[in-house]
Computed example of a mutant assay.
Amino acid sequence: MLGPYYDNADGTTDGRIRLNIQNPNGIEPGTWKYEVYGYKVTGTEDYTI
């Protein structure tokens, strides 16, 4: 499990959260799942993964 992460985690409030997963032995194969929740959002917001 990773997170939670918030917009200002990188020191800038810009609507972006950058997450870079690295492992010299590779990343675990299989099905990965993610959940995205809005926090202090009015209306709807678009996002990309």
Rank of each mutant, 00 (worst) to 15 (best):
L2V: 05
G3N: 01
Y5Q: 05
Y6P: 00
Y6E: 06
N8E: 08
N8M: 04
N8Q: 09
G11F: 03
G11Q: 02
T12V: 15
T13I: 12
T13H: 04
D14S: 03
D14L: 02
D14V: 01
D14C: 03
R16Q: 13
R16G: 00
R16Y: 09
R16I: 14
I17H: 00
I17C: 01
L19T: 10
L19W: 02
N20W: 05
Q22R: 15
Q22K: 14
Q22I: 13
N23M: 01
N23R: 09
P24F: 04
P24C: 04
G26S: 06
I27V: 15
E28N: 12
P29E: 09
G30D: 06
G30N: 06
T31Y: 05
T31A: 10
T31L: 11
W32K: 11
Y34D: 02
Y34C: 05
Y34Q: 07
E35W: 07
E35M: 07
V36K: 03
Y37T: 14
G38Y: 10
G38K: 09
G38C: 08
K40M: 11
V41A: 08
V41Y: 04
T42M: 08
T42W: 10
T42I: 12
G43F: 02
G43V: 04
E45C: 12
D46W: 10
I49S: 13
I49W: 12
